[in-house]
Amino acid sequence: MEMLTTILPLLLMFAIFWFLLIRPQQKRQKAIREMHAALQKGDKIITIGGLHGVIDSIDEDIMVILVNDNRKLTFDRNAVREVVNPD
């Protein structure tokens, strides 16, 4: 019984830590992975550096973004922060 009263607060702290920190972070990472997997040509995006553009071509790891004056820039697929397609 004494051992249970010693371990119970530690287990409770771990459970609170899990539900407040670890689980939400895993959900965010999953959403980002799904967004990166769903990228396609024509999507309007914003990169992690703040660059706005339209995806001109995309493959497994690299994409070409069309920016102002039809200039093309090559970025890593993981550089996309968000897709801003109007719905």
Rank of each mutant, 00 (worst) to 15 (best):
M1H: 11
E2P: 03
M3R: 13
L4D: 11
T6L: 11
I7D: 07
L8A: 05
L8H: 07
L10S: 10
L11P: 02
L11S: 07
L11E: 05
F14Y: 11
F14H: 10
A15W: 09
A15G: 08
F17L: 11
F17M: 11
W18H: 08
W18F: 10
W18Y: 15
F19S: 05
F19T: 09
L20C: 09
L20H: 10
R23I: 05
P24C: 00
Q25L: 12
Q25I: 10
Q25F: 11
Q25A: 08
Q25P: 06
Q26T: 05
Q26Y: 12
Q26M: 13
Q26D: 07
Q26I: 09
K27D: 06
R28K: 14
Q29L: 08
K30P: 02
K30L: 08
K30D: 06
K30S: 09
A31K: 15
I32V: 11
R33T: 07
M35I: 01
H36N: 05
H36T: 02
H36M: 04
A37M: 00
A37H: 02
A37E: 05
A38S: 15
L39M: 00
Q40I: 09
Q40W: 04
Q40K: 14
Q40G: 02
Q40L: 09
K41G: 00
K41I: 15
K44S: 14
I45S: 00
T47R: 00
T47P: 08
G49L: 15
G49C: 08
G50H: 01
G50I: 00
L51K: 12
G53I: 01
V54K: 10
V54N: 05
D56L: 10
D56V: 06
S57N: 12
S57M: 08
I58C: 00
I58F: 00
I58E: 00
D59P: 01
D59T: 05
D61G: 02
V64T: 14
V64N: 14
V64P: 07
V64Q: 14
L66S: 15
N68M: 13
N68I: 10
R71G: 03
R71C: 04
K72Y: 09
T74R: 05
F75D: 01
F75N: 04
F75Y: 15
D76T: 12
N78Y: 12
N78Q: 12
V80D: 04
V80M: 06
V80P: 03
V80N: 06
R81L: 15
R81E: 15
V83E: 14
V83T: 09
V84M: 10
N85D: 12
P86D: 13
D87Y: 08
